[in-house]
C-alpha cells in the first residue's frame, strides 16, 4: 500500500491540493461573504452613486476628496480546476463569478470605510477597475487572482453652524 502511494505520489499530491482547496476555499469564502454582508449593513447610511452630479444634495458642499479602496483576491485550487473543465464545454463559469463579486464588493466596502473616516456624507462618481494580476496573469489564459479598485469622490458637508466655534 505504502509503495503504491509512493509510486503515484504526484497523483496523491494533486488530490490533496484539490481537497484542501475545496475545504479551506469554501470555508473562507463563506466567512468572507458573512463579513461583507455585515459591513455592507453597517455602511448603508453612506450612499454611493455612479453619477457625476452632486446637485441633488440640495445643500452646500464643504469639501471634495478622492477616496480609493482596493483588494486582491485569489481563487482556490478546486475552483480553478472546475474552471479549466468548464473551458472544455463552455458556458457560465460560476466558480469565477463569486471571485470577482467578492473582490468588487470588498473594494467598494474599503472605499466606503475610507470615506467614512474622512467624515463624508456621500460618494459620487464611483468607478470600478478590475484586472488579473500575479504570475498566472501572463501564463496561459488562466487567471489566478483578480484585483479590484473602487474609487470615487467623497463629498464632505460643511460643519453645522453651531460647530464653528
Amino acid at each position: 500500500m505504502g509503495e503504491f502511494i509512493l509510486q503515484h505520489s504526484d497523483f496523491f499530491i494533486f488530490i490533496f491540493f484539490v481537497a484542501l482547496g475545496y475545504g479551506a476555499g469554501s470555508l473562507m469564502e463563506r466567512n468572507h461573504y458573512r463579513s461583507i454582508r455585515k459591513r455592507e449593513q453597517a455602511l448603508l447610511s453612506l450612499p454611493v452613486t455612479t453619477t457625476e452630479h452632486e446637485s441633488f444634495i440640495g445643500s452646500e458642499i464643504g469639501e471634495a476628496t478622492l477616496v480609493v479602496g482596493s483588494v486582491v483576491v485569489s481563487i482556490d485550487y478546486f475552483k480553478r480546476l472546475l474552471a479549466i473543465l468548464r473551458n472544455i464545454f463552455g458556458g457560465a463559469v460560476t466558480s469565477y463569478e463569486s471571485l470577482v463579486d467578492r473582490a468588487r464588493r470588498e473594494a467598494i466596502l474599503r472605499m466606503k470605510e475610507a470615506a467614512r473616516q474622512q467624515g463624508a456624507a456621500l460618494v459620487i462618481n464611483l468607478r470600478l477597475e478590475t484586472s488579473a494580476i500575479g504570475q498566472q496573469a501572463n501564463r496561459k489564459r488562466q487567471v489566478g487572482s483578480v484585483e479590484a479598485i473602487a474609487y470615487g469622490t467623497a463629498i464632505i458637508l460643511p460643519a453645522a453652524p453651531g460647530d464653528d466655534g
Binding site: 491540493f17 484542501l20 482547496g21 479551506a24 476555499g25 473562507m28 469564502e29 468572507h32 482596493s70 483588494v71 486582491v72 483576491v73 485569489s74 481563487i75 482556490d76 485550487y77 475552483k79 471571485l99 470588498e106 494580476i133 500575479g134 498566472q136 489566478g144 487572482s145 484585483e147
Partner: peptide, 12 residues
C-alpha cells in the same frame, strides 16, 4: 495562498 483562495494581503 493561491491553493486555498482568499485575499492576498501581500499583493493588496
Amino acid at each position: 495562498k493561491n491553493l486555498v483562495g482568499g485575499e492576498l494581503k501581500g499583493y493588496t
